[in-house]
């Protein structure tokens, strides 16, 4: 996966910066140096560790929300269009 462009990374990182990088860090879209900075920061900062976990929980929970049980309002017309295409198509059977 492509990572952030390598830029000069300041020696210290604030909680505000860690929080802003949270999703990129979780998806491993940060450069090695920044990743190291954030990892070290998370080890000593309970607030940022909590924040990072919460973003991970949100990421995983929205993927488990009950799916809308949607069907096309005019499914019959779609089915007919598909059948018509099959009859027209040289590869259709």
């Amino acid at each position: 996966m492509a990572k952030e462009e390598v830029k000069e990374v300041a020696p210290d990182i604030t909680c505000q910066e860690v929080a802003q990088w949270a999703s990129a860090y979780l998806e491993e879209h940060v450069g090695d140096e920044r990743k190291h900075q954030i990892t070290v920061h998370l080890a000593i900062c309970a607030g940022c560790e909590t924040y990072m976990k919460q973003i991970a929980i949100v990421r995983d929970t929205v993927g488990l929300l009950p799916k809308w049980d949607e069907q096309p309002s005019d499914a019959h017309r779609l089915r007919q269009a598909f059948v018509a295409w099959v009859h027209r198509s040289p590869s259709g059977k």
């Binding site: 505000q16 309970a46 607030g47 909590t50 924040y51 976990k53 919460q54």
Partner: peptide, 14 residues
Amino acid sequence: GHWALPPQPWDDQT
């Protein structure tokens, strides 16, 4: 730049 109001932990069953 550091937390003034840090998030409160959620439990493992969240």
